[in-house]
Design a protein around this nucleic acid. Structure first.
Lengths: 155, 155
DNA sequence: GGGCATTGGTTGACGTGTCAATCATCAGCG
DNA sequence: CGCTGATGATTGACACGTCAACCAATGCCC
């Protein structure tokens, strides 16, 4: 049958395009700033943020990857790179021979404590300040709705 | 002086987190779908979309990179990969010895004509359907506002 | 027309992400 | 105890993006 494709109407397309452009530009800028300010990638930041919010700055590998919602292989590569740079270490897990703990080093703490305030500042400057509190709220609600919707969708 | 950092308040942070999570999940799913459905990356899609919207499916290299707002080195690598897979070709530019035209091949047309309807379907299914027309509108306006704001900001 | 900054584009190195395969350990069950 | 399948994690190959350096034509000005 193959009906003619069901394209977005012009207003929908405009909204979608804006969103995509915005999102790309924003994320791009933020991560370039992070890199320039703190010699740290967005990925580094996310991992350190997740880890340091946990008691003792240590977490089981899989718990960490769940917390930040990554695939385990991505996390494994990332931890490898971060370990090489001294931001985290791997420790054996006493009660499960396969398992690993990931632990923030003092270096790692230093790094994120330096980066976080600058990062927030940029989020404010580029994003929060652009819109009203109400708009920010609305955006938050819309995002939550989309997220919930996706969770109900296959794939 | 170093005042204590100006963190986001809880509502702001919640909205920001939602947005980030939504955006990552959505983009992630869409590009995995694209890859699975059409053996094509999001980058391939963007480039082909830009090119095919132009008369004759051909464009000057730099015009193309401006149209999709990429850095030229990114585009150069991307074109290289796409050329290797036969989606586009490079052609010399008669009136500027340095320049290059990028041209969509028949293969390239086939590829995007197959991919586009599926892609739109997923955008609908995962995103558009999750929210009302009005919310989509609002999101578009907010995005445009953030975009405009960023354009006025350094860096 | 000879120098020289500018423009158009490529390259290489490196960090990052995905997928599929692999490996070691562990839990459950006969 | 000894399989067997599930769980926790790593690996390798490859696509992608960024940065900085580079190269080759071009335009321009003296």
């Amino acid at each position: 049958m193959n009906a003619t494709p069901h394209w977005l109407d012009p207003e929908q397309k405009a909204a979608w395009d804006s969103f995509i452009r915005m999102q790309e530009t924003l994320i791009g800028r933020l991560s370039r700033r992070l890199q320039a300010d703190s010699r740290m990638s967005a990925a580094d930041f996310v991992v350190l943020a997740g880890l340091t919010e946990s008691e003792g700055g240590r977490m089981r590998f899989l718990d960490l990857t769940k917390r930040v919602e990554w695939e385990k292989s991505r996390m494994s590569h990332q931890i490898g790179r971060m370990a090489k740079r001294g931001l985290v270490t791997r420790e054996e897990c006493p009660d499960d021979g396969r398992g690993a703990y990931i632990v923030v080093t003092p270096e790692g703490y230093r790094a994120i404590e330096e980066a976080a305030p600058l990062h927030v500042e940029h989020v404010r400057r580029l994003f929060v300040e652009a819109i009203t509190q109400e708009e920010l709220d609305t955006l938050g609600r819309i995002s939550a709705r989309v997220l919930a919707h996706m969770e109900r969708q296959p794939d």
